[in-house]
Each structure stands twice: as C-alpha cells, then as structure tokens.
Design a binder for these strands. Structure first.
Ligand code: FES
Ligand code: FES
Lengths: 141, 141
DNA sequence: TACATACCTGACTAAAATGGTCAAGTTTAG
DNA sequence: CTAAACTTGACCATTTTAGTCAGGTATGTA
C-alpha cells in the first residue's frame, strides 16, 4: 500500500501555492524550484486540479495559478480525487453482487477491506488544506 | 493507494485456514480451491507466513498448515509484515534527517504522510484474525 | 509590435512493481 | 512405493508509475 507521487506532489504543490498565494498568482516554475518537482509533471497535475476547479489559471507573463476556493473547503479527498489518486482496497466491483473471486457472493474478507477503505477515506475527508497550512506554520514559526 | 493481492490473499487464506483448522491441517490445495487463489502463489505466501511463525507446516500426505498462535494474537499487522505488504506513505527515509526532495529538512507534507501512516497502521494493529473469523460467522450464521 | 513568460496538450517511454507461472525437488502417511 | 503436500528458486508477461519531450497558445510589458 503506497501513496503515488502524483497524489503526494499535488498536495505538496497546493500547500506551497497556498502559502505564497497572497495577491499574485504563483507560477509552476516557482513551485517546481521550491519543492523540487519536475515542471512538466506539475503541469499535468495542475491541469487536473484546474479541471476539478480547485485552482484557477492566469495566463501570460506574471501569470500562474491561484486557489479557486477557500483553503478550508479544499479537503484532501478533493485533491486526491482530482488527480486520480484513489484508495482501492477491495478487489471486486462495489456495485456488483459478485465477489472478487468470480463467485456469486462477496469473498470472506470483503467487509474487512471495505472497513479499511472507509477508515482511510475518513482521514482524507477530515483534512483540509487550511489544516496543512497551519501545521506548517507551527513547525516553521 | 491500493492493497496488493499478496496482502489480500494472505489474509483471505488465513481466515479460511482458521475456519477449517479444527484437528487436521489444511492443505493449500483446499484453500486454493475454496478461495480461488493460484496454488503456486499461495505457496510463496505461506512460505513467508511460516518464516514469521504465523503458521506451522506438516509435510507428507494429509499434511498441510496449522496456525502457530492463538487467532487473537495474530494481528493484521503481523500478517502484512510477514508478506511484505507495507504501508508506505512518506517518500523519504524515516531515520534520515533529510527530506524526500534531497534537501536538509523534511518536506512540507512529511508530517501529514506520517500521520496518515499511523492512522492506517492503527487499523491493522487493532484487527486480529479472531475478529475476522467472528465477523465472518455472523454474516454466514 | 516583439518577445519573454507561463500556461496548455498530447504523445511517448524507461524503469519498477505486480501477479503470477514453471520446474524440480523433499518429506511422509498409508 | 507412491501419491499428496510442502519447499525452493528462477523466471516472466503485463501493468503502473513517474516522469520526459515536443510542440503549441495566451498575454503582460517594453
Ligand atoms: S474484495 Fe469484494 S468480494 Fe473480495
Ligand atoms: S515525505 Fe518525508 S520529507 Fe517528504
């Protein structure tokens, strides 16, 4: 079970963005340099964040990205969903009545994995970008 | 973030084993058939479970595997650890002072991922094989 | 108006991880 | 003696990951 770098970078970049987003848009170039993330890769990520209305883009010189919502309204769930970082613990299709083994009933561990998925998602739902910014302020003063 | 089938199968197989482990050892062949898991793959998995003293093996005809501990003392953590299904959310080496970005300090999201890792591991530490057997009895009567 | 900056898009790919299979044993009950 | 079942290690196809590359397009500023 591991986190992919797409999800990790998305959150990193947004925390960085939120910290510097005062008046001016923040360019991916700056984020790239500060956080050591490939610029090309960041572009892919922000394209998705934009589609999901988490950020707004401003083109041209002095352009960049700005948050599209209040940091308190951006939960980790939203970010992960935007970049397709999904938590997948069950193997079967959830809608289906069939199990992961092809049988007509769910497998003997299905409920367990389902519980786990909920457990993890709860964490993501309760954590907002604002929380992260604050945590970060504390540790750096 | 997804669960690999090694971890999933390990737990599945152990629940199956625990349910049928009365007097006689349970053969992998039976587990394979009941749970639709490749026999060859199960062998790899049980080899690891054995090394970690979660099961005991009995060779020869009528042989098979038996639990090596009380189901209540086998936590998901133990099972996952045995088959190398590890939760990895931070990117950096934990012991090191350096961050995942190569810089001298931890990255701005390090604490978050660390929290997440603890959150998930807590789930695994609190869930025992016995819990799973009971859950399963309930749903099947 | 030129031009540099920065967003935008899609194709491509090397490397790693995953989810197994295959082959050749050894042990032991009956 | 033989079949059932564990044991070990090598091997491999496919998928996923984590990017790179090569073009574009929009726009503020000089
Ligand atoms: S995970 Fe849903 S049936 Fe096995
Ligand atoms: S995850 Fe530990 S420093 Fe980034």
């Amino acid at each position: 079970m591991k986190l992919t770098s797409k999800g990790r970078y998305a959150v990193m970049a947004l925390v960085d963005l939120a910290r510097f987003d005062n008046i001016n848009p923040v360019s991916l170039r700056d984020i790239s340099l500060r956080q050591s993330i490939s610029l090309d890769y960041l572009e892919q990520i922000f394209s998705k964040l934009k589609k999901n209305e988490i950020v707004k883009s401003i083109r041209g010189t002095q352009g960049g990205y700005v948050l599209n919502k209040n940091p308190n309204d951006i939960k980790l769930t939203n970010i992960f969903h935007a970049v397709d970082e999904k938590v997948k613990t069950v193997q079967c299709k959830k809608e289906s009545k069939r199990g992961c083994n092809g049988k007509a009933t769910k497998c003997i561990t299905h409920n367990l994995w389902d519980e786990l998925e909920i457990h993890i998602n709860t964490f993501f739902e309760n954590k907002s970008l604002e929380d992260l910014i604050n945590d970060n302020k504390e540790t750096r003063v």
